[in-house]
Design a protein around this nucleic acid. Structure first.
Length: 192
DNA sequence: ACTTCGATGTCCT
DNA sequence: GGACATCGAAGTG
């Protein structure tokens, strides 16, 4: 099973399994510690709940690509496309820790007062990594892509999540009726 | 064409 | 803990 196949499962399966993976861009790397699953048919809070549009079309495309969209007038949200064949879905990256290039990450987040303020939010993460709409649709698994998704060292396809260390909660920021009660958020507990 | 409102961050009290 | 800036996308007519 290669990485693409690993991501070709329901986003709810993929999300907890991507904890500890890294996003890399121009010398910076961040380690993912907070992720949310967004599905299609059964998930009214997902952009893939409806038909494909110019914005959400990456969610319907190949797993392992990026889906980046603009929200609340200021912020870019980074997603990793993940879904079963013939379906749609993605994993939203909501939080991370610096792994490499920390000084550069910091310089792009001048408003971050504390360490935990640097990457603890989807908009903050995109700002620190300088990801925006121009990256939507990029293949995160292809060498040579400016934005890449990297598995942990010693990763194996049969790796299972360490549930002892994962906190499962409802997703953040969803209105009533949008699946706000679904426990589809996964956080590496002792690292938040 | 116009309206609504969001998968948020920041600053202020 | 609360106000609010900010601007596309998508829904409505």
């Amino acid at each position: 099973m290669d990485l693409r196949a690993y991501l070709s499962r329901h986003p709810l399966i993929v999300a907890p399994r991507l904890l500890g993976w890294r996003l890399a861009k121009d010398g910076c790397e961040v380690r993912l510690i907070e992720l949310e699953a967004y599905a299609d048919l059964e998930d009214p809070g997902s952009h893939a709940h409806r038909r494909p549009t110019r914005r959400n079309s990456p969610m319907f495309g190949p797993p392992g690509h990026a889906y980046v969209y603009f929200c609340y007038g200021n912020h870019w949200m980074v997603n990793i496309v993940a879904h079963e064949p013939g379906r749609a879905g993605a994993v939203l990256v909501r939080g991370a820790l610096p792994f490499a290039g920390e000084a550069l990450l910091r310089s792009r987040r001048p408003k971050a007062r504390s360490d935990r303020d640097l990457l603890n939010g989807p908009g903050k993460l995109a700002q620190a990594l300088r990801v925006d709409g121009s990256h939507s649709g990029l293949d995160l698994l292809s060498e040579g892509s400016p934005l890449r998704l990297l598995p942990p060292e010693n990763w194996r396809p049969d790796h299972e999540p360490d549930w002892e260390r994962i906190r499962v909660t409802p997703r953040v920021g969803l209105a009533e009726g949008k699946g706000h009660e679904l426990p589809w958020r996964f956080v590496l507990a002792e690292e938040e």
